[in-house]
Design a protein around this nucleic acid. Structure first.
Lengths: 178, 178
DNA sequence: GTCTATAGGACGATAGAC
DNA sequence: GTCTATCGTCCTATAGAC
């Protein structure tokens, strides 16, 4: 049922993810859904808790990544990864959509905490706060543009610079320790 | 009336920006509002057209900025500018909120076009597509995190690196022409 | 041009059978 | 635990007086 809610919020926005639609997508009836999630807030909380668990797993993977945390971080933030059906990416997109409505403070807090944790890991690797912030900004930029709004315009092979070059540039900065 | 709609969408999200609320905010009655904007789509279109006009003005200012397009671009993308009551920033935030619902294709297209135009101006200045993309990603990252979701957590004087240093770093890259 | 009144519909949530 | 049926509320949009 959470999967159905997540899917609808991700693809069509929060407005369309009504109890009726979620129940239909999950293959149950509205009453059945409301037994497990008595309110809309319960549904949101369920997704936020799922996100928090996935953040823990991602931070662990990031700190122990073979090519370093920065490489892992930037690569998993690119729209290429979003296009795939990665559960973590889908969950982030869903919670982001929920947060942007302004009605779910818990969603906002979870996303803020996620960014703080990423920043700490990156800072630990690159050492310099300026470079660490730059890396986080690039990752956020990659995440938000242009994917979530218009999945049709995601064009990995476009004339824009390949993301591998951007990573190399950032790692160069990290080594020079500006 | 458009101001009222923009303000409500920006501060409280699209859900709360009903005809009733917009009319009350604008100081007219619901019927009066509906005379000028016969449907919700008309309201959205009005805001998108306002955005397109503001984009034209911003691109012009950006190309002729004293300290260069990159400096202008990054500075006006930072949350410090968002906190102010800049009409352009407010309009972008409002249209972004509308776009994230997935119900207004015109809003999505306007934002994509905006990013393409910014990229073209930056590329024209820095020459290198990789650096140009990096600059745009940083600007997008600055824009989206963490401001729009949680205006209370905007903390310009936080321990994170000052944005001026980030700009310097990007300009260094631009000069070295990686 | 601006108002009141209301139609028509969708949504969140409850009640109670099975 | 899952279902059907339904209540109350809120929203978009229309009709028509002024």
């Amino acid at each position: 049922m959470l999967d159905a809610f997540e899917h609808l919020v991700t693809t069509s926005g929060e407005r369309t993810a009504t109890f009726d639609a979620v129940a239909a997508e999950a293959g149950v009836s509205k009453g059945g859904l409301l037994y497990h999630f008595p309110s809309r807030e319960a549904l949101v909380d369920g997704l936020v808790e799922r996100l928090e668990a996935l953040i823990d797993a991602d931070v662990t993977a990031m700190t122990s990544a073979d090519d370093g945390a920065v490489d892992y971080f930037i690569r998993t933030s690119s729209p290429d990864a979003v296009a795939d059906g990665d559960p973590f990416d889908r969950c982030i997109t869903a919670v982001t959509n929920l947060a942007s409505s302004g009605r779910w403070p818990r969603a906002v807090e979870a996303l803020s905490a996620m960014q703080r944790r990423w920043y700490d890991v990156v800072l630990d690797e690159v050492g310099d706060p300026v470079v660490a912030r730059l890396v986080c900004l690039v990752a956020d930029g990659l995440w938000f543009t242009p994917g979530p709004f218009d999945q049709a315009t995601v064009d990995p092979a476009a004339a824009r610079a390949p993301i591998g070059d951007v990573i190399g540039l950032l790692q160069g900065l990290s080594r020079r320790s500006v």
